[in-house]
């Protein structure tokens, strides 16, 4: 702190203390005010709200961690909460097991030396990621619709027509279908991030490996993969944060009630329903805030795991 103060003198020669403060306020003021008022304050206020309980007369009284206890143990609240949490975990798991490996495989192929049309593939495969989730949701709803019959037609072409079912409408398949649509849309993000990391690996390393007798595939597994481990960690934490904060796709495809018997309900839709109310219940500010705070904690835990487990370990691989 002391030398920071001394540095201030160096930066602006011949400027008075007052006008220096003015300068800082001018440059930093707008950003700090907007960010604090519309981002940090709402986050803190939401956590604060979660500690209060609405009384029948409309007043709010301090309830400590009572709302959290209600959410986690009272079955009218805990059953939907754990259902949404479990579904959200599956949602995340499907992204980790399908989206990120496909993204990795595509990135690996795109980064092969002397591949032609590289930029064209990259641009086209990334295209769905650009579109609004609302558009993607409706588009797939049409494609999977038994009315239009496109997907049945495709399955028939391979003699698999008997497999067709209204996947989005069935309790047992709604969540996995929605997850796979999300995977289809967002596979571009891991692909691009991993692709960039792969391009940053010095050519000589791969040349050395191939001279030692490794083929492209072995060179990828034994040389490149360990080097892009930090990027895979980053992709995982981004997937985690986005998945536990997801809402748009499920809302666009299944509405706020999230599918037959809440089978596609995730934290985002539960939060929306609780806060705004719906056909089944009235909006509840305190419980809405409580769920948002739980989402905040879950996301925080994910980020912490990343920072402590992965970020720390990756120092060893940096070059």
């Amino acid at each position: 702190m002391a030398d920071a103060k001394a540095g201030a003198g160096n930066a602006i020669v011949g400027m008075g203390r007052g006008s220096y403060a003015m300068l800082l306020v001018f440059f930093l003021g707008p950003a700090v005010v907007i960010y604090t008022v519309f981002s940090i304050y709402p986050l803190l206020a939401t956590i604060f709200n979660s500690l209060y309980l609405r009384q029948p007369d409309g007043a709010y009284i301090f309830n400590g961690l009572g709302n959290f206890q209600t959410l986690l143990t009272d079955t009218t609240w805990s059953a939907p909460f754990w259902n949404a949490f479990r579904n959200n975990c599956y949602f995340f798991l499907i992204h980790m097991l399908v989206q990120n490996p496909i993204g990795l495989a595509l990135a690996a192929m795109l980064s092969l030396p002397r591949l032609r049309f590289r930029a064209t593939y990259r641009t086209l495969i990334f295209m769905p990621t650009m579109l609004s989730v609302v558009i993607i949701g409706f588009t797939w709803q049409l494609i999977l619709s038994p009315l239009w019959g496109i997907s049945k037609m495709f399955l028939n072409a391979f003699g698999l027509g008997f497999l067709f079912a209204p996947w989005l409408g069935q309790e047992s398949t709604a969540l996995i279908t929605v997850s796979l649509i999300s995977v289809w849309q967002f596979v571009g993000i891991p692909m691009i991030l991993i692709y960039t990391a792969l391009l940053a690996i010095p050519e000589e390393l791969i040349d050395a490996a191939t001279v030692d007798g490794l083929n492209q595939f072995q060179a990828f597994i034994w040389v490149k993969l360990p080097l892009i481990f930090p990027t895979i960690g980053l992709v995982s934490v981004l997937t985690f944060v986005n998945n536990f904060n997801a809402f748009d796709l499920i809302y666009a495809m299944k509405g706020a009630l999230a599918g037959p018997n809440f089978s596609a309900d995730i934290m985002g839709t539960l939060f929306y329903r609780t806060f705004f109310g719906n056909q089944l219940q009235l909006g509840d500010l305190s419980m809405g805030s409580t769920i948002a705070t739980m989402m905040f904690l879950i996301i925080l835990i994910g980020i912490m795991c990343y920072l402590f487990l992965i970020q720390r370990r990756m120092q060893r691989y940096s070059f």
């Binding site: 519309f38 981002s39 709402p42 206020a45 904060n245 985002g268 948002a292 705070t293």
Partner: peptide, 13 residues
């Protein structure tokens, strides 16, 4: 941290 989590207070504001 996604700003969406502060939505309740954003609406009030």
């Amino acid at each position: 941290v996604p700003i969406r989590l502060g939505s309740v207070a954003i609406i009030q504001l």
